[in-house]
Computed example of a mutant assay.
Amino acid sequence: MREQRLQVDILRGDVRELEGRLEEFRLSDEKLDGRLKASEGKLREKDQGIAPLAARVLRSVFTVKTDDGLGAGFAGWVQDGQLYVVTAAHVVSEVGEQVLLERNTGSWRAEVVGRDRGRDLAVLRVDGMPSGAKALWQRAKANKPRVGDALLLIGSPYGLGGTVTSGVVSRVRPKEIQTDAAANPGNSGGPAVDRKGRIVGVLVAGGGENLNFAVPIMRLCGSLRRC
């Protein structure tokens, strides 16, 4: 009887060990399946190119029209139920100025509520809430690009709203991000976006198709936004 009980105990131990191994295999399979799905998702995203990203960001980018000209701006954040749009300081004239924001689905009035000439950045408060315009920088977070990273510029060159160009980050300095993505008059104030859709900067200047500059998004902190 003792020998039989011993054999039964041994068999039970073997069964538990086998069950443990089967559970390890199951967990391993789940991890592999998760990695496979993630890889497939990345491949699909790569095959689709930048189109899905551009479509998502475009809903939050506007043409900024003033009495003196035009530029671009993007939905930055929502505070107390109001949308704040970021643009370049040289696109607008002064705090209190009334400007017009346009997008293919309509137009909205906005007021300049902050302007930092030194950093060439400005903030507008929108009268109303444009449908579909998601705040692109709701959390005041630094998204630091690296040289060689892909970069999208979205703006209104020569008034052509919703224009998207792409390139790479050519150079990074504390106060500026250089890119070879094409930009022209009317792009100023538009967002510089990485491949994950994160705002890395605000376009403020250019010297040609392959020499354009954005101010790092965190330069808004302090004078124009509490971060």
Rank of each mutant, 00 (worst) to 15 (best):
E24V: 03
R146M: 13
K141E: 15
C221H: 09
A75S: 15
D68L: 13
G13K: 08
K46C: 05
L70I: 05
A110L: 10
Q48Y: 09
N104I: 13
V126W: 01
L151T: 08
L32N: 06
R21Q: 09
L220D: 09
R5I: 11
A72C: 01
A75H: 10
P52H: 14
S170V: 00
R139P: 01
N210S: 14
R198P: 00
L124H: 05
Q7R: 15
L53K: 02
N212F: 02
L83R: 05
F213R: 10
D29W: 13
L151W: 00
N187Y: 00
G197N: 06
A181N: 09
R109A: 03
V193D: 06
F74T: 00
A122S: 07
E19F: 03
I217N: 04
L36K: 04
L53V: 08
S156W: 12
G118K: 06
A142Y: 08
A205H: 08
K37S: 13
E97R: 01
P185E: 06
N184D: 12
V85F: 08
R195D: 14
V57C: 05
R26H: 13
E23V: 02
I199H: 14
L121V: 01
P145W: 07
A182K: 12
P185D: 03
W137Y: 09
F213C: 12
P191D: 11
V215L: 15
L121E: 02
G201T: 13
D194R: 00
F25E: 04
R195T: 12
R103P: 07
A51W: 05
E97P: 01
V91Q: 00
L58Q: 04
R2W: 07
G132D: 08
R171F: 14
D149W: 10
S188P: 12
I50T: 13
Q138I: 06
D194A: 03
G132W: 13
P130R: 01
V64T: 12
T63R: 00
L53M: 01
E3R: 04
G96W: 03
E209A: 15
E24S: 12
R56F: 07
R109Q: 06
L83T: 02
M129A: 05
N143D: 04
